[in-house]
Amino acid sequence: MIPELPLDQVRTLLAVVDEGTFDAAAAALHVTPSAVSQRVKALEQRTGRVLLRRTKPVRPTESGEVVVRYARQLARLERDARGELGMSGAGEPTRVSIAVNADSLATWFLGALTRVPHEPRLCFELRREDEDHTAALLREGLVMAAVTSSPDPVPGCSVRALGRMRYLPVASPAFAEAHLAGPLRDSLAEAPVVVFDRLDDFQDTFVRALPGGRAAASPLRHHVPTSEGFAEAVAAGLGWGMVPEAQADPLLETGRLVRLAPQRSVDVPLFWQQWKLDSPALATVAEAVAATAAEALHG
């Protein structure tokens, strides 16, 4: 027989993770730290798993992430039910937490949120993260939905394809004239390059894919960790870079950018993942995101 998970213990575990310490969780729950510790230990005994790493701040283990996600889903269902029963506070909006990559946030995603109906009242909590890592926030139960590059659903989540985001290799005309006179594969291995952050290997991947391409782009790198700043840095001539088509096109039309390889681009498939919940709030957001993506992304 599978033991049940008592709600008070589940909610206590979530409070510890959210507050970061047992003492802070106790204050938030208006109980003693001893009571918090006992509830967490009882839940660990019931599940037969260690659920928390006793660090500062406290972190959930892999098993703890499952319980945290379950706790957040329970809280979401409770809020929806209270709303449908008219038990919510006067004018209290529903919070929807979403992980989204910087380039989507800078180009098409905010337009999707403007298409969400005004009723029920929603407020959005957006967390910016690389599309290769947004699924991790879903897995940890930190967000309810995510724009991700992974077609493999996180446990407890559904997934739908949104389309492909196209990136163009570009530089300013002056930069191209000064640094890219020879064969492109050799020039890009030496020319200054703009990258988003230290985890960004997009430019390296493009260089490796060129016929006879080198192992990576130049080690002379400018780190610009915002989507808008990245495109502006390339247009200003700091280096070349892979810029989203939606941002590059206006700059190409005005002559501030030139394409380095007119026949080459890179498409990144994007997917929408969300909790498998019968939640009106999530459903309305998902439809608005899918509709906007169909217009803004390549099929």
Rank of each mutant, 00 (worst) to 15 (best):
A216P: 01
L168E: 04
H118G: 09
D103C: 10
P269T: 10
L77Q: 12
C157K: 06
T55G: 03
E84D: 10
Q73A: 09
A146F: 05
V96N: 04
E65I: 02
A71W: 03
S158M: 09
A191P: 07
F271H: 14
A296W: 04
P219C: 04
H30Q: 12
I2V: 15
I2N: 15
E84R: 14
G83M: 08
K41V: 05
L142I: 04
A26Y: 08
L85E: 12
V40L: 13
A235L: 10
L105P: 01
A102R: 03
G255Y: 00
E92M: 09
A75T: 00
S218P: 03
V207Y: 01
E129G: 09
L238K: 08
L138G: 11
K276Y: 00
P183Y: 02
V195W: 01
A146P: 05
V266Q: 02
E287C: 07
Q203C: 06
K276T: 13
A112I: 02
D200L: 11
P269M: 11
V147S: 12
E19G: 04
P93G: 01
V266W: 00
Y70F: 13
H133L: 15
P244Q: 05
L29F: 07
A71V: 02
V36G: 12
A26L: 08
A135N: 06
A288V: 10
E287H: 10
S104N: 14
E295T: 10
T292K: 00
E62K: 07
A288R: 09
G213S: 04
E19Q: 15
R72C: 00
M87H: 03
A181Y: 05
A15E: 14
G182Y: 05
M165E: 03
A191I: 08
V289K: 09
S88A: 12
V16C: 03
A178L: 07
M87K: 01
S34K: 04
L180K: 01
E129W: 11
A71E: 04
E190S: 11
A286T: 14
R160I: 10
L113I: 06
G48K: 13
S37V: 07
G156T: 13
H133S: 15
V67H: 06
V170F: 02
R95V: 01
A75H: 03
A161F: 09
R49P: 07
S187K: 08
A146R: 09
A27D: 12
V116C: 01
R185E: 14
M242W: 01
G212K: 07
R160V: 15
R198P: 02
T205P: 00
G229H: 05
V67E: 06
Q274P: 06
E19A: 15
A81D: 08
W275L: 07
F22L: 14
P33C: 10
P6C: 14
G83W: 08
P169R: 07
P151A: 13
V224Y: 01
L251I: 05
Q38F: 02
Q263R: 07
L168F: 04
D152R: 13
L110Q: 01
G20P: 14
D152H: 11
K56T: 07
V243Y: 07
P33K: 10
E4I: 13
L113V: 08
T107L: 14
A24L: 15
F196P: 06
G89S: 15
